[in-house]
Amino acid sequence: MLAIKDLCVRLEDEKKEILKGVNLTIKPGEVHAVMGPNGSGKSTMSYVLSGKSGYEVTAGSVALKGTNILEMEPEQRAALGLFLAFQYPIEIPGVGNMTFLRTALNSQRKFRNESELNAAEFLKLVRDQAKLLNIDTEMLKRPVNVGFSGGEKKRNEILQMAMLEPSMCVLDETDSGLDVDAMKIVAKGVNGLRNRNRSFLVITHYQRLLNHIVPDVVHIMADGKIIRSGTAELALEVETNGYANFKEIA
């Protein structure tokens, strides 16, 4: 599904190197978790995958479903099935959540030469999905993320993911800011989307989330590199000992 090879990235402006040779391969249907100290480059990796400007790839490659995506526009990557649940979802004043979702969904469908959903089909889909995630329909009418609480924003990201049905989902700290119940709802939402053809890259600081979304592989990222990979056990180790031990190894 996703193959990141020796990825090196620096900031366009400051020429500061942030990713220093990341290697990560995710097979279809797998769930991988990435943990790591603040500032280690996790969000940067998610931005580079999705094509945000301001970063310069100095070496390495990223293939999604066998296609090199580094030269593609963000919307092309999205249409190919890449989705990023943002660590800090963006507010768009004046643009209704529903309008936003419909525009996004239909853009992707158009891109893939599929027919656009009509109003009724769309409405039904969004209402059903919102219900699963315990999202009030009032929230669908409000402008995208404007005035949403931290937890509401995160749930809204998962709603978008459920609507867009991507094949490669990157979740950047979706659990941060969620109360216990909301985390269970989000985990349930994610688990409901798990299937043989869909993969997840879950960035988190907390082992807790991984009790609900059980990963196939856990990676530890530090200083722009994956320094350890292992089973779910690895997350428990982080929980008890922190990152100190890993750093020494690195």
Binding site: G51, E73, P74, G94, V95, A104, L105, Q108, L164
Partner: peptide, 21 residues
């Protein structure tokens, strides 16, 4: 970027944001 990550082309993204404005 947020719009584009969701699959909305750049021009349409500008139109969306401006319409919101």
């Amino acid at each position: 970027f947020y719009c584009r990550q969701r699959g909305v082309g750049e021009e349409e993204a500008v139109a969306l944001v401006v319409n919101g404005f």
